[in-house]
Write a protein that binds this DNA or RNA. Structure first.
Lengths: 218, 218
DNA sequence: GTCATCATGTAAGCCGTTACATGATTGC
DNA sequence: GCAATCATGTAACGGCTTACATGATGAC
């Protein structure tokens, strides 16, 4: 879970742990809660595994497709990063405790892809798979979304299959059950949207897709 | 979390671990996944803490308010339990490994109440609080639901406050964000229903409430 | 010079999982 | 008598949290 989040963020731009945590918190969902106590050990583990590597002249954020539309926190952070050129290394000679900027490696990219297409029934993991879905090829996206779809459908079937299962069916348990069914139905509709979106990109494969890839220069 | 689920189920009827696990799986939500490896240690811990106790002539399921409406698994299980009277103890004398039927104690009931009214931002815990909400007094229910309400409202505000926060805003991240907002809105509407329901019961306090407390005998 | 913030880590502990081990009961 | 299911537990481990420890930097 945390590996997927870290690698997904590093795929876009080199970052140090502290900044990484902030970015994690900006993602929707319940990733805000990730703490240093799990982040730093995770980074160390990923580094040992060769998925990330400490970098010096670190790669800033690539220029976004939409240029300068208001307050783009990505741009701001990239500026912050650029505004102290080489400081990391210089200070490491004398003082201690400076930022360690990490970048993703080739092996890390492979790992990221594995995680992004990986089978999982976990809701939070799927949210991450969507959040970083852009790093997949269209046909991979379709497959991930369709797997999720059948997963949700199965859950809904199971839920509906036990009709008022508990003898002690009071209003609250009943209400909870109905709510769960509604949630699953909503999620299904959403995943259907995602599948449709990914299918469109599949059809457009080869042609430039104006909204996401290329197409900035007319 | 698991303590709440166990105590909530034992409040209705005495059960042994194996059966407890099945009941857990029947609850809506993601409680199906609870494993023996956490259930049995949890039971042992609760027993050491005096919240549950092994019982002999164990209390079966109380008669449900709605009598015999179709296949009531609660009734079936109660029948199953009753169909081997006294077997637990008899067999324990000679053989080993027989069912240990647990019942809730007075201290366990106090603990259950604490957990049911407890502050928590955890979605799954809240689902349990709703599922066993009937064990609370109306005013406690109202307070739990309202706390949840303000919690969700806060989350929604936070989500909406960071509008397109990431410079790298692609369709998928965008879609995820919108979906999260929809989910929170739906949850809010649901909690509002729950609050309304609980408030009704508050107003009816003192009078018999036909659907849940008393009122079986006309 | 001191305080808030930035920044990196370690330690203890909780909560849960899977895999393993053991044995009893029931149906065929 | 043998397999499936019922039934209880232990061991090892994983992932995440809180609390703690340490130090640098910049604003005032």
């Amino acid at each position: 879970m945390i590996d997927l989040a870290i690698l997904g963020l590093l795929q876009d731009q080199d970052l140090h742990g502290y900044e990484l945590k902030k970015r994690l918190g900006e993602l929707p969902g319940a990733f805000a809660g990730v703490s240093f106590g799990s982040l730093y050990p995770a980074l160390a583990r990923l580094e040992r595994a060769g998925a990330v590597r400490e970098v010096e002249g670190h790669r800033a954020a690539p220029a976004p497709n939409v240029p300068m539309t208001g307050a783009l926190s990505g741009e701001i952070a990239a500026f912050r990063a650029r505004s102290h050129p080489g400081r990391e290394r210089d200070d490491r000679v004398t003082g201690r405790r400076n930022r360690k900027v990490y970048g993703i490696t080739a092996s890390g990219r492979t790992r990221l892809e594995t995680l992004l297409v990986g089978t999982t029934a976990d809701d939070r993991t799927f949210a991450l798979q969507v959040a970083f879905g852009r790093h997949l090829r269209p046909e991979q996206r379709v497959s991930v979304f369709e797997r999720r779809r059948s997963d949700l459908a199965e859950r809904l079937r199971t839920l509906l299959a036990q009709p008022a299962a508990a003898g002690r069916n009071d209003q609250y348990l009943q209400s909870l059950r109905e709510h769960d069914a509604r949630v699953l139905t909503n999620d299904l509709a959403w995943v259907d949207e995602l599948v449709a979106l990914a299918r469109l990109e599949l059809d457009d494969a080869g042609q430039p897709v104006p909204t996401s890839i290329g197409g900035i220069h007319p």
